[in-house]
Every structure is written in C-alpha cells, then in structure tokens.
Simulated scan of single mutants.
Amino acid sequence: MSIRVVVADDQELVRSGFSMILEAQRDIEVVAEAGDGAEAVAAVRQHSPDVLLLDIRMPVMDGLEAARRVCGQSECKVVMLTTFDLDEYVYEALYAGASGFLLKDVRRDDLVHAVRVVAAGDSLLAPTVTRRLVADLVRRRRQESTAEVTPQRLEVLTAREVETLRMLARGLSNAEIAGALFVSEHTVKTHVSNVLSKLGLRDRVQAVICAYETGLVAPGDGES
C-alpha cells in the first residue's frame, strides 16, 4: 500500500522537484500539490494523505497556520520545509503538531527516508539539530513564561514509561530503547503508545517537548 503525500510549497520548482523524487519510489504516491497554505489544507481534506510536506513561509495562509489546522483536523503527519535550520517558525511548528522538519536542500535519500519514517508513525528526532531545536524551544518558553515546571504531569506514567519517555527525549530509536531496557521492540512500542495516550500527546515530537518542559531531561542530556 502506497504512502500518500501532499507537497505544499509556493516555489513551483521546489514543489515539482520534491514530487518527482517521491513519485520515483514504488511505495510513495504524490496525490496533490499546493502553492499556498490554504490549498494545502484543502488538499489534505480532499485526499486524506498520510504525510504533508509543508513549507513554513507561504502566501495566503502561512505554513504554521496550515499545520495547526491539518494537525487539529486530521491524522495526516506534517513535515515542515524550511530554508534555515533555526527558522523562528520551526519552534511554533513543533507546538502546532508537526512531526519534524527538513531543510529545503535536503538530500534525495533523506527526503524519501523522512516521508517513510513519519508515515510509519515515527518522528524526525534522531538528528542532533532537531533535539537542539526542541531543547532551545523549551528554554525560550520557560524564559517567556512565569509558569512553574509541572513534573506532576508525569505521575500518570509507570516507572518504565517514564524511562521510555526519557530515552525518547534523548533521541533513541525504538530498537535502541529496547536494547537499553532489555525488552522487545514490541514492548517499547506499547510503552510509547501508553505515554502518548496518558499525556494526551499527538506524537513523539510532542512527547520530547513534554519531557523537557517537565524537567525530566535537561538541554544537553544525551549529547556527545
């Protein structure tokens, strides 16, 4: 069964280039293209894709608002496209529910890999730059907010689920977590599912944000 994708970018060459790369894969089908945020939201409603590649900066409706609507109204996974790895909007996009982001100069293989990873229900958390973004995002939120850290939010989790969340926040894959906890990958997937369900989170990216916000992990943890 093919992974259904919508590609949204206001630059036609970028949009068509990504579409051609993805269409060349046997397991991926580009069901629509969009030139602005409003068209992207409409395309998701019409075609019910698995993944939306969404440029952050677009006319009519920017990618951030489009991401909020898509993530709030569908099960479609959103991957943001940006020119800069520290684009200010990336932070807001993660809070809006995006499953990760890619730079527009992404390599062909990395683009295809990203679509497959997100479609499978995972998130683009492995790259160190993404973990730094999440850590910096939380630092900024704490500086801007007078609200206290609320580790009590994690009290609904079992000890093993807390440990799973901690490892997620450090960027470990399911296989790596399974190895560290001496359990099967199936068991890890169950733990991850329980964490998301109990905390009311959409995906692993939001789980990582939660781990930082509650103080379970600190910026720099797990970095070499």
Rank of each mutant, 00 (worst) to 15 (best):
M1L: 01
I3A: 05
R4P: 06
V7I: 13
Q11L: 10
Q11V: 13
V14P: 08
S16H: 11
S16M: 12
E23K: 15
A24T: 11
Q25I: 07
D27W: 00
D27H: 03
V31T: 13
A32E: 12
A34C: 02
D36W: 01
P49W: 03
D50L: 08
L54C: 08
I56W: 01
I56F: 02
P59D: 00
D62R: 00
R68T: 04
G72K: 01
Q73R: 08
C76N: 09
K77N: 13
T83E: 14
D87L: 02
D87F: 06
V90S: 04
E92W: 10
A93F: 10
L94D: 05
G97P: 09
S99F: 08
S99E: 11
F101P: 07
D105T: 14
V106N: 11
V117N: 10
G121Y: 01
D122Y: 14
S123H: 03
T128V: 14
T128F: 04
L133V: 14
D136K: 14
S145D: 13
T146K: 13
E148S: 13
E148L: 14
T150M: 09
P151I: 05
P151S: 07
R153F: 05
L154P: 05
V156Q: 07
L157I: 07
T164A: 15
M167E: 10
R170C: 11
I177W: 06
A180C: 02
E185I: 12
T187F: 00
V188F: 09
K189F: 03
V195G: 03
L196Q: 06
K198I: 07
G200N: 05
R204E: 14
V205N: 10
Q206W: 05
A207E: 10
C210K: 13
A211E: 09
Y212E: 12
Y212D: 03
E213A: 13
D221Y: 00
